[in-house]
Design a protein around this nucleic acid. Sequence first.
DNA 1: TCTGGGGTCCTAGGACCC
DNA 2: TCTGGGGTCCTAGGACCC
Length: 436
Amino acid sequence: MSAYSPSNTLFALVDVNNFYVSCERVFQPKLEEVPMVVLSNNDGCAVARSAEVKALGVKMGTPWFQMQELAKKHGIKACSSNYTLYGDMSSRVVQVLRSFTPNLEVYSIDESFLQIETVLKQYQDTIELGQKIKQQVKDTTGLPVCVGIGASKTLAKLANHLAKKHQQFAGVCDVNAMAKPELYQWMSETAVGEVWGIGRQIAKKLQAQNIQSVFDLLQASPQAMRQQFGVVMERLCYELRGTSCLQLEEVAPAKQQIIASRSFGKLVTSQVELAQSVATHAARAAEKLRTQNSITGALTVFIQTNPFKQYEPQHHQSITIPLVDPSDDTLTLTNAALAGLKQIYQPHFRYKKAGVILNLISDKPTVQQSLFEDMESKGKSAHLMKAMDEINTRFGNAVIRSAAVGTNGTKQAWQMRSSNKSPNYTTKWDELPVAR
DNA sequence: TCTGGGGTCCTAGGACCC
DNA sequence: TCTGGGGTCCTAGGACCC
């Protein structure tokens, strides 16, 4: 049996180009064509770049002070961020998209997935639909978007990337409608690190085994990828092959945590100053908590030194304070946070950041896995390999959570548990021949 | 001198119960 | 039949996303 069912679904990913920059330009048209960035809190670093600035090779997150020279040379303008404005623009975009289909997932502030196979019959083809969406968003909100279409979310993401990068798509790309050779060509020209879910670390490991392009990854065996990188990677491989594993999430799942944190404009050493900041964060977090009608059963406080100051002593400390009675009360949460701070604070360090995390109450089961390989390394391997073969032939691709082998002197027995992500084969004893 | 602020999921491993 | 650490909860931390 397989956890992955084939489907004929078609996803469209609609993504606003350079979202924060584009929002600023809607209200300041004179910034159109001007190379510009939007800066983070404290005007620390660039969190959005215009196309011109990207073309200059400026990376996401580049500190503003590091690009002074470049800015002077190319006339780069900088804006402080205005998240209220961006949030408002975001909901306007979503409103337009909903007029195309109710089957929509708001994935982030500037991206939505649409399930489009049912809408399609009103249009000549997917490209026409994509262009309509693009035009409609532009006319209504002033924001430029690109549309990527594919048989899975991951492919829709990839298509969106192609639409953004390559002029000839005119902002709309459907990898599902493409002939295979053409798709493979694009895939081999796209670095594996561009795939949704492949970050820096994994990309590095993949490249080390000569998986450089998206096409290379497509060729790799999902099972082998799972062994090395885990179940998320396996899912991703199937997604790339056009088997959809990630569903549209039309209703946003309840949040599991709420974070309120800030960097300091300058380094802080005194407990009093830290306490002021922690109290502010606790209050802000409590406010967020109440607006979504939840309560918290535990609260985490953390303080950190500046990781960029390599030669300064580093201190990352956090503590979780359980609340006897789950609460949403500002005073209760603030007091708990301050009590936590008292326990982790150490003088002599220069702190850069402080924050509060609320852990929301949920009935989600915890997931644990331990691997055969690990048990083997603990010296239980004598008969484990046999047991493993046995288990594999019987249960195929079940995710094994733990396994054990025992003996009564003449017979071997094994026990396994699967994870709760796959069919639950809980405890099961069986006999194996004794190995010698 | 100056380097964001949110989130998610998965895995490892300790502690305690039986 | 009845093997032997398994069951379960919790926390920390790494990887990813925008």
